[in-house]
Every structure is written in C-alpha cells, then in structure tokens.
C-alpha cells in the first residue's frame, strides 16, 4: 500500500442508497473521483448534498451500495469491520465538527489514544504527542481536560489527535462549524502548514466560505452528484483584519 504511487482514494461509479420507509434514498449518484497524495481538497455543497456520506465512505465508516471506493489500495466495500478499523487506525485521521474529544481524559491522553491503539512504545508515544501539541500550540495545556478548553483549543486538540499517527489522509467534516472566524482561520492555517510539512492529504466536507478559501481543490457536490471539480492555483488566504 504505497500511496505515493497512485491516488489516495479512487471512487468509480459510487452510489450510496439508504433505506427510507419502503423505498430508499439515494445520497450519492455515480461519483467518479480521485484524490491524490498531498492534496488539500474539499467536498463543497449545501446541506444534504451527500458530503458527509462521501467522507464516511472514504473513511471506511460506511460502504458503497454500488461502484467502488478504493482508499490507500483497499476496496472499502470488501473490508471486514476489523479490516476497516485497521485501515482507519493506521492511515486515516478524523476531525469532527463537534470536536468529540474524550471528556474524562486530558489533552495529552486524548492525543495519545490513537498511538495506544497502534501499540506504539511509551517513549515514542510521548515524543509524538508532545511534538504534535507543539504544532497546534497547546504544549502548555497537556494536563487540561476538554471542559477546561475553548472551542478553538478543543479543535486544535482534535487536529493533533488526527495527525499524531501521521496518517495518509485526514478527513475533516465541517471542522469550523462551531468556531468563530479567528479560531477557524487559526486551525485552517495549522492544517495548511501540516499539509505542507508532512505531505498529509486533507479532505474536507464543508460549505463554510472560510474553509473554501483555503482549499486548493474544490469538488462541488449537488444532490449526490459531482457538478464541478476545480483546482485553485493560489488559494485566497485570509488577510490580516478580515
């Protein structure tokens, strides 16, 4: 599974249907898409357009109804629960709209958790966690609990947790929805820097203009279909005071 040789994710004729009453609701209608290593891309569209469903399939949290989704060389539809968990464990990081930190654990422990699942040695874990907390600017909060942090700080912890295992791809579902403009730009800049430094692929699901401005590739999703897929040569990054 060498992501550098091909796309991180390759979706072909992807259809996703959900049962609804006696019939079903089609959330994705024949998506053909490739996400290449190192991209800073986003699936953009209004609510109900299928963004989260698409991210869930790429993140091996859900399976296609038709078509194929190959992520990091693995066909999502053919993975067992355990194999899917293994794929997420090793190669995929998640960032959520509501942060979803584990409330009873400290900042340090939240970030450490993915490494515990990977059975990394204690010293390696410590080094990686401290490095990542430094990246997100929370070295002074390692003993704090999530309830003692602001929303922006919580999301920075969530970014550190997603990045600490150096995944192939980070999937971020509306990561700025609960943040104010300053915090949104702060965490987006952090993610841009991480993308540039570690080469980690970022894929967003968003309809937030603040996020869209940072994307280098915008995939417009409407009613379950890709209606536009454009690469932005130079993202319109935030200027001071805006």
């Amino acid at each position: 599974m060498n992501a550098s040789n091909g796309p991180i994710a390759r979706l072909s004729g992807l259809v996703k249907r959900f049962p609804m009453g006696r019939g079903h609701f089609t959330a994705l209608r024949g998506i053909d898409l490739q996400i290449m290593p190192g991209e800073f891309t986003g699936v953009v569209g209004p609510s109900g357009s299928g963004k989260t469903t698409l991210l869930n399939i790429i993140g091996s949290l859900d399976t296609p109804s038709e078509g194929s989704a190959v992520v990091l060389g693995r066909s999502i539809g053919e993975l067992s629960h355990k194999q899917a968990a293994d794929l997420r464990n090793h190669h995929i990081g998640f960032i959520f709209q509501t942060f979803n930190l584990l409330p009873v654990y400290s900042v340090y422990e939240n970030v450490e958790f993915p490494l515990l699942l990977l059975r990394k040695p204690a010293e390696e874990r410590r080094k990686a966690v401290l490095e990542m907390l430094e990246w997100v600017g929370l070295s002074d909060k390692i003993r704090s609990r999530p309830s003692q942090l602001s929303g922006g700080e919580c999301q920075r912890v969530a970014i550190a947790r997603a990045m600490v295992k150096k995944p192939g791809i980070v999937l971020a579902d509306e990561p700025t929805a609960n943040l104010d403009a300053d915090n949104s730009h702060h965490i987006l800049k952090t993610m841009v820097r991480m993308n540039e430094n570690f080469g980690t692929t970022f894929c967003f699901a968003t309809h937030d203009e603040k996020v869209i401005r940072y994307l280098r590739r915008k995939i417009l999703l409407e009613d379950g279909r890709v209606t536009k897929d454009e690469t932005v040569k130079k993202p319109r990054l935030r200027r001071a005071g805006t």
């Binding site: 293994d86 997420r88 090793h90 958790f113 699942l117």
Partner: peptide, 8 residues
Amino acid sequence: VRLAIGES
C-alpha cells in the same frame, strides 16, 4: 470517536 480512530 474510538471507532473512527480505528478501534474495532
């Protein structure tokens, strides 16, 4: 979260 992070 635990499932998303990769716990089975």
